[in-house]
């Protein structure tokens, strides 16, 4: 029996190195040059001057604060709604809800942004309100819900329905079975979903820029306005900080998903 050898196996390895370099070198150079004392792309000497500049820019600090508040509230809401929804769909599917969730996922961001803007403007005619933090939060819940439902549903597929039935056979009500049996089994999925919702909320520019008011400029909006005027070392430094922040989130999420309380017991 002959073994199939991948053609040019060693060249494939060289290609893979180039591929990963293409994927990761741009961000790495960005991070390196954020420590460069010179404004130009020629290495001068190590300096933290651009990082100091970030912390003395009130607009950036306000944007970061707004982004954090918006991300935390919208993540809490979408994780709650999404988990309940995923559980309900797991009990019995609903083509309408699933279809709407998938459609919301493929809708171009700019279309989601302008349609939410149109909705808010239309309802303000009667309510006498204006765009602000809460419209951004509503918009973020609107687009992050699908991510939460998908991640929690993936976790639910690994849980045996017999578990809940057993709890109810032993006298638990439907609610008790959900709180004491299903929820603990879903924790890793819920945490992963929440972290995903947090990152998409923290990163979003397109939808946010359409529905944000004057008092709710987020970090990506401030970042974008600066980047639109051209590259600068200050933006490099913010980029490095954002990347580091997201890096911490990945490590946290890895830790939580690998530490799976009684995971194997729950499987079929």
């Amino acid at each position: 029996m002959k073994r199939w050898r991948c053609p040019r196996a060693n060249k494939l390895g060289i290609y893979a190195v180039a591929f990963f370099a293409f994927l990761h070198l741009p961000l790495l150079t960005l991070a390196i040059f954020s420590f460069n004392s010179s404004r130009f792309t020629v290495w001068n000497h190590f300096s933290l001057v651009w990082y100091r500049a970030i912390f003395s820019d009130p607009q950036l600090l306000e944007g970061a604060w707004n982004s954090t508040v918006i991300a935390l509230i919208s993540t809490a809401l979408s994780t709650l709604i999404g988990t309940l929804c995923a559980y309900a769909l797991w009990k019995r599917g609903s083509r309408l809800v699933t279809g709407a969730l998938y459609l919301s996922l493929v809708t171009p961001e700019i279309v989601t942004g302008i349609s939410l803007l149109a909705l808010f403007q239309w309802s303000f005619r009667w309510l006498g309100l204006q765009l602000g933090m809460y419209t951004v939060i509503l918009a973020h819940v609107a687009f992050s819900l699908a991510y939460v439902v998908i991640v929690v549903s993936a976790r639910l597929r690994t849980v045996s329905p017999a578990l809940e039935e057993a709890a109810m056979d032993l006298g638990a009500t439907e609610w008790e079975a959900f709180v004491h049996v299903m929820l603990p089994a879903l924790v890793p999925g819920i945490v992963a979903a929440a972290l995903l919702a947090l990152t998409v909320s923290f990163d979003d520019y397109v939808i946010t820029s359409m529905v944000a008011g004057v008092d709710s400029q987020t970090l990506p909006m401030v970042f974008y306005a600066m980047a639109r005027r051209g590259a600068s070392p200050v933006i490099n430094a913010i980029s490095a900080l954002i990347t580091a922040f997201f890096g911490v989130l990945i490590v946290v999420s890895e830790r939580i998903s690998s530490r799976d309380p009684a995971g194997d017991l729950l499987r079929q």
């Binding site: 741009p26 150079t29 980047a227 933006i235 954002i242």
Partner: peptide, 13 residues
């Protein structure tokens, strides 16, 4: 897991 905005900006840089 990294910001799409930052990754696009990297090419601007």
């Amino acid at each position: 897991w990294t910001s799409f905005l930052v990754r696009t900006y990297a090419w601007l840089f």
